[in-house]
Amino acid sequence: MKNIYIFLLMLTAVLLCSCSQAAASQGPTIRMAYLQNDIHHLPLWVALEKGYFQKLEVDIQIEGVFKAGPEIMSAFAARALDMAYVGESPATTAVANGAAKVLAVSQVNTEGSAIVVKKDSQLSTLSELKGKTIAVPGHSTVQDFLLRKGLSQKEIPLKDLNIIVLKPPEMITALDHNQIDAFIAWEPYPSQSQTLGIGRNLATSRELWPNHPCCVIVASKKYTKNHQDKVKAVVQANIQAINFIEQNPEKAAQIALQYTGMRIETITRAMQNVHYTAKLNKQGELEYVQFLTKLGYINLSDPERFVQTFVNSTFLNQCTF
């Protein structure tokens, strides 16, 4: 009997230790992730297709294409990623709750989401969403955040909303079958619902919060510490890609087509709703932190200090625009 106890104790010790040392080795290859069909992440696709990363001598390995931001942040917590394109809201939540240790090293886009209702829906203003069922891609995603912030600005108490989680590809079908009254998603899903003749925009996120920060490039603190040059190169490639999108929107749309498989009219419509920019916005991040705290998702003693460390413009300042 005694032997069994010793064995079990050793087994537990081994399990616990292996759990704490699960970190994989960090080579110069950057383990990168992005969101499925999220046109906000077009600069990454452009940089990959145009070979910007190779030119700057960074080796990018796509480790995963995720369905929502919180999943990407869980992968950071498991130390399975070095960098990712992800929404500012899930990144903030994960860092503030101690799950992942990452820095926001560059903005990717502002705006670019929309609240969609059925084409023939009676709903015409945000205030009418009171008491309705609205789908979001996940709790603490940028869209969840925008919806709650937008509606609380309209003085609709959040308890009067039935917010549910659906993955963006399922939202259009759910709307079509009247299982939800509205959804909020990243582009190109709002545009796709219009191309398919199912939905129409009730409000774009620009109307909810003009110029709101959306996706950022995050880098794990550990990777940043060891490979500053690589992180800087990714930030630089992102800027080049944004310039390319601005100058060649049609060619960029073709790349988006390749990565999303959606129709070109969907892509073009979607791109009009997104503003690509690399400039980080600390004031915007502070608004995220304050509202996420108000929602009870995070609990920070010093929000300002959090923003100062989380939003890191060091690499951006070294880049050429």
Binding site: A68, P70, S74, A77, T93, A100, H139, N162, V165
Partner: peptide, 16 residues
């Protein structure tokens, strides 16, 4: 309905 133990766990995952 936005309720359910499985749903609750997934939400806790989203919010870490």
């Amino acid at each position: 309905q936005g309720y359910g133990l499985g749903y609750m766990i997934m939400t806790a995952r989203d919010i870490h």
